[in-house]
C-alpha cells in the first residue's frame, strides 16, 4: 500500500503566552514506499508520535492529507476509518497498551475478533507469540506481565491481522538488548514480506535495519542521507 503524507501540520492551542498556538508538527510531506522499513529518529517532544498518530488516523491533522493509495483517510467516516485501521494498520503505541482483563492470547486475538466471528488465526497467533518469545505466557492475564512482555504482546497484536502497514511508536522501549534486536529482526522480516513498516524510536541501532531514515527536530522532518 502506497502512503503519501502531504503538507501535514499539527498545531495545539496554548493556554497562555504570546502565540495562541504552537506547531507540534510543521508542514511535512513525504512518501513511504510499499514493503520498506522506515525509521524516524528524534528526541522526546520533537513531534514523532504526533506524526505517527496522524498517519495511523488517530489524530486529525490541522492541515494536509494522509493518503493511502491516493485516498485521504480523514475523508472516511468513523466506521470506515475504524475498519480501515483494523484491516490495514497494525499499531504499537508508545504507552503500554494491553487490556489487563484479558489473557496474552486474547489480547493478541482482539483486533481479529473485532470484526470476525470465526477463529481461523489461532495457530497464527501462537506463531506470533513464539516469534516474540511470549508463548509460555499465552494464558497469563496481561495485568501480570512485565513492561517488556506487554510490549511484545502489543507487537504480536499489531501483526495478527497481517496488516499492510505497521506503525511502531518506540516499539522497543522496555526491552533488553537481546529482545530489541529480535524485534527489529521481526520488523525487517515483515517488511521483506511486503508490509510497510514505519517506526518512531530513540534507538539509533534501528538505522541498520532500515531502508530509509528520517530525523524529527522541533516538529520538522528531514531525511537523513
Amino acid at each position: 500500500m502506497k502512503i503519501e503524507i502531504k503538507n501535514v501540520t499539527k498545531t495545539y492551542p496554548r493556554k497562555s503566552g504570546e502565540a495562541n498556538f504552537f506547531y507540534a508538527v510543521k508542514e511535512t510531506s513525504f512518501n513511504i514506499s510499499e514493503g520498506s522499513l522506515s525509521v524516524i529518529l528524534g528526541r522526546s517532544g520533537s513531534g514523532k508520535s504526533t506524526l505517527l498518530n496522524m498517519i495511523g488516523g488517530l489524530l486529525k491533522p490541522t492541515s494536509g492529507e494522509i493518503l493511502y493509495d491516493n485516498k485521504n483517510i480523514f475523508d472516511f467516516n468513523d466506521k470506515e476509518l475504524s475498519v480501515f485501521r483494523n484491516k490495514n494498520i497494525g499499531m504499537i503505541p508508545q504507552v503500554q497498551s494491553v487490556l489487563p482483563n484479558l489473557t496474552v492470547f486474547e489480547n493478541v486475538m482482539l483486533p481479529y475478533a473485532l470484526y470476525k466471528k470465526e477463529n481461523t488465526v489461532g495457530e497464527y497467533a501462537d506463531e506470533l507469540l513464539k516469534m516474540t518469545g511470549i508463548f509460555d505466557l499465552k494464558n497469563v492475564y496481561a495485568s501480570d506481565l512485565s513492561g517488556g512482555e506487554m510490549r511484545r504482546v502489543a507487537i504480536a497484536r499489531a501483526l495478527i491481522n497481517k496488516p499492510s502497514i505497521i506503525l511502531g511508536d518506540e516499539p522497543t522501549a522496555d526491552l533488553d538488548e537481546e529482545n530489541t534486536e529480535k524485534v527489529f529482526e521481526i520488523f525487517k522480516k515483515t517488511a521483506q514480506q511486503g508490509t510497510t513498516v514505519l517506526l518512531v524510536t530513540h534507538e539509533t541501532d534501528a538505522k541498520k535495519y532500515s531502508d530509509c531514515v528520517y530525523k524529527m527536530q522541533s516538529g520538522e522532518l528531514s531525511k537523513e542521507t
Binding site: 488517530l58 468513523d78 475504524s82 475498519v83 485501521r85 483494523n86 484491516k87 499499531m91 487490556l99 482482539l110
Partner: peptide
C-alpha cells in the same frame, strides 16, 4: 480511558 484508546487503536469504532 487509555484502555478504551487501545480499543480505538485496534479498530473499534466510536459506536462499538
Amino acid at each position: 480511558k487509555k484502555e478504551f484508546a487501545v480499543l480505538r487503536i485496534i479498530g473499534t469504532s466510536r459506536k462499538m
